[in-house]
């Protein structure tokens, strides 16, 4: 008798059992189920997906993670992925996923009607769902609105220790810097980033909600965040001394930095039909209204109105850098951010 038989046998069984996990998980997935990889905060997207599930009976399994992590993961998983839909809050990452052929080009007439072409990939591999603007939120007790006009002003030494910024890993900071780089070129962008880094000091946050919180508490005077974080905070703290400023609206200014949250169908999805229904739902009036109401984002469907508390979309200009350019700008922008020493 082999002396290690009793040890080897359970080991083999264990390996078999574990090895089977991914396959059973894949095979057991019924047609009316969808796996959604989401780079958006779970709290923001889950209600929308719940609404879809309630309406269609298609069960949605949600994996929330970092956007870049998901792109890396989709790439590694290749054609063995269990994911059907990729949903995130950065057009640059969606474009990157398209470049890596991770997404399935779509031909859906009703989507092309619903969402303007400038918010979609050229081949419709991804579709924008909601717009967000990178704005300056400030504490009304610590700053007057006229003091900052352009985002480049934030590099000014007078704001040392007064500004909070997201960390370098956040996709919308990367997207924002890409826009600035496209408009002003590398040197001025670098100058801006170095100044911003010095002014922010240790006020570098992982979450936008933390930035708004810090401003409301007066720890810093202002901060750069996506606009909806302000409205979400104010709905919980109506008395917070907070206000918002759309930057670069002066004559000849580049306009406010815009990004979209969007969705794409994973190329190797085994549930393309159900995935299409989800995309259609998200782009439909009903889905768009959820984004507008729940998340205080600007719906991209021209017929759906933004939350009345938000500045009217017509009242400010957006930067004209095409969203599809964010993908290719990503790596050079990251190099720039790193060289400037942002964390």
């Amino acid at each position: 008798m082999h002396p290690l038989r009793p040890i080897l046998r359970p080991l083999l069984l264990l390996l078999l059992a574990i090895g089977l996990v991914p396959f059973t998980a894949t095979d057991g997935m019924a047609a009316d189920q969808l796996v959604v990889y989401s780079g958006r905060a779970e709290r923001l997207i889950k209600p929308v997906l719940d609404a879809f599930q309630a309406k269609t009976g298609i069960q949605v399994n949600l994996l929330s993670s970092g956007t870049t992590e998901i792109v890396n993961r989709l790439q590694a998983e290749g054609d063995r992925t269990t994911a059907d839909v990729f949903l995130t809050n950065d057009a640059g990452s969606l474009e990157r996923a398209r470049e890596l052929s991770l997404l399935l080009p779509l031909e859906l007439a009703n989507i092309e009607q619903a969402i303007p072409a400038s918010f979609r990939a050229l081949d419709n591999s991804w579709v924008g769902l909601s717009g967000r603007f990178w704005v300056l939120v400030y504490n009304t007790g610590l700053l007057k609105p006229a003091e900052v006009r352009s985002i480049l002003d934030l590099a000014d030494q007078r704001w040392k220790g007064k500004i909070a910024i997201p960390n370098a890993g956040s996709e919308y900071l990367q997207a924002g810097v890409s826009v600035i780089k496209a408009v002003y070129g590398d040197d001025r962008t670098q100058q801006f980033l170095t100044g911003l880094r010095d002014n922010a000091g240790t006020s570098v946050y992982g979450k936008s909600s933390q930035i708004v919180d810090a401003i409301a508490k007066g720890q810093v005077a202002m901060g750069l965040v996506n606009h909806y974080y302000l409205y979400r905070y104010v709905s919980d703290h109506p008395d917070a001394p907070l206000a918002l400023s759309m930057l670069d609206q002066q004559a000849g200014g580049m306009g406010a930095i815009m990004n979209v949250a969007g969705v794409g169908i994973v190329k190797h999805s085994r549930h393309v039909d159900a995935a299409k229904r989800l995309v259609e739902f998200l782009a439909s009036r009903e889905g768009q209204k959820l984004f507008a109401d729940l998340n205080k984002e600007y719906p991209l469907h021209p017929d759906v109105l933004a939350d009345p508390a938000l500045p009217k979309r017509e009242s400010f200009r957006a930067a004209t850098v095409p969203l599809t350019k964010l993908g290719e700008l990503r790596e050079p922008t990251m190099a720039l951010i790193e060289r400037a020493g942002l964390r």
Partner: peptide
Amino acid sequence: IPFWYGTVL
């Protein structure tokens, strides 16, 4: 082992 990536294993 890309096919095991993202599994419990």
